[in-house]
C-alpha cells in the first residue's frame, strides 16, 4: 500500500467496477430463485427431504459462484444443480420419491406429506384461516403425490418446464434428449397428471362421503 502513497490520490477500483464481468451479489440469487428451487426440490425428492436438497443446492452454488461468470440463466443453473443434488440424494437413500399410497393424506411417514402435516400443526391465525391453510396444504399434498406417480422423465419434464419455467431447450439439455422429446414428455406428463389428480379427487370425495 505504502509504495503507492502520493500517487493514488484518485480512486482505485471503487469508481470503476468492471460492470460487465460482475456477478450479482449471491443474495440476489437466493431471493429471486429460492422459491422456485424449493418447489423443484419438493417435486424431485418430496417435501420432507426437499429442505436438505435445497440447502445442498445453494451451498454448492455459493461454493463455485465466483467462477460462474459465464452463466447467463441463473434459474437454469440452479435447477441443474438441484437436479444433481436430488440424484445424489436418491442414490444415498436408495429409494425413489414417495410412491404416494392411495388416498394418501393420512399418516404417511414418507417424505411428501410429512412437511405439510407439520405445517398444518404450526397453524396461522385461527378458525377459518387455519381451515383454509389446511385445505390448501391437502391440495398441495395431492399434487406432490400425483407428481411422484409420474414416470421419471415425465416428472422431470413437467417439473423443469412447468414448475421451474425452463424453456424446452434447457429441459432437453437436462434430460439428455431433444427439445421435441422434452416437449412431448412434458405434455404426456401433464395429461397423466390430470388423470391421476381426477382419480385421487374421486377417491377423497368417496372417502369423505363415508364419514
Amino acid at each position: 500500500m505504502d509504495r503507492h502513497r502520493g500517487v493514488v490520490l484518485t480512486e482505485p477500483a471503487l469508481s470503476k467496477p468492471e460492470r460487465d464481468a460482475t456477478l450479482p451479489p449471491f443474495e440476489v440469487l437466493v431471493s429471486t430463485h429460492g422459491a422456485t428451487v424449493l418447489r423443484v426440490c419438493r417435486a424431485l425428492v418430496g417435501v420432507s427431504d426437499a429442505d436438505d436438497v435445497w440447502q445442498e443446492t445453494f451451498l454448492a452454488a455459493l461454493r463455485v459462484y465466483p467462477t460462474a461468470s459465464k452463466i447467463t440463466n441463473w434459474q437454469a443453473w440452479l435447477v441443474t444443480i438441484a437436479r444433481n443434488k436430488a440424484v445424489d440424494h436418491h442414490r444415498k437413500s436408495f429409494r425413489l420419491p414417495v410412491p404416494a399410497s392411495g388416498s394418501g393424506v393420512s399418516d404417511s411417514s414418507d417424505g411428501i406429506f410429512a412437511g405439510d402435516a407439520r405445517l398444518g400443526a404450526a397453524g396461522h391465525g385461527g378458525g377459518d384461516a387455519v381451515a383454509h391453510v389446511v385445505a390448501a396444504n391437502l391440495e398441495a399434498a395431492t399434487v406432490w403425490a400425483a407428481l411422484a406417480k409420474l414416470s421419471h422423465t415425465q416428472r422431470e419434464a413437467v417439473v423443469f418446464h412447468h414448475l421451474a419455467g425452463l424453456p424446452y431447450r434447457e429441459v432437453a439439455h437436462l434430460l439428455g434428449n431433444s427439445p421435441e422429446a422434452a416437449r412431448r414428455a412434458a405434455s404426456d406428463g401433464m395429461k397423466a397428471l390430470r388423470v391421476i389428480l381426477a382419480q385421487s379427487r374421486t377417491v377423497s370425495e368417496r372417502t369423505s362421503g363415508e364419514h
Binding site: 422459491a35 418447489r39 417435486a43 404450526a122 390448501a136 399434487v143 412447468h162 414448475l163
Partner: peptide, 20 residues
C-alpha cells in the same frame, strides 16, 4: 419472487409455499 412462471392449473396448488 419469480413471477415469470405461469403454472398450469393442475400445479397451482403447489405454487404457494407456506409462510416462513
Amino acid at each position: 419472487m419469480n413471477t415469470d412462471v405461469e403454472l398450469p392449473l393442475e400445479l397451482a396448488a403447489v405454487a404457494d409455499l407456506e409462510a416462513g
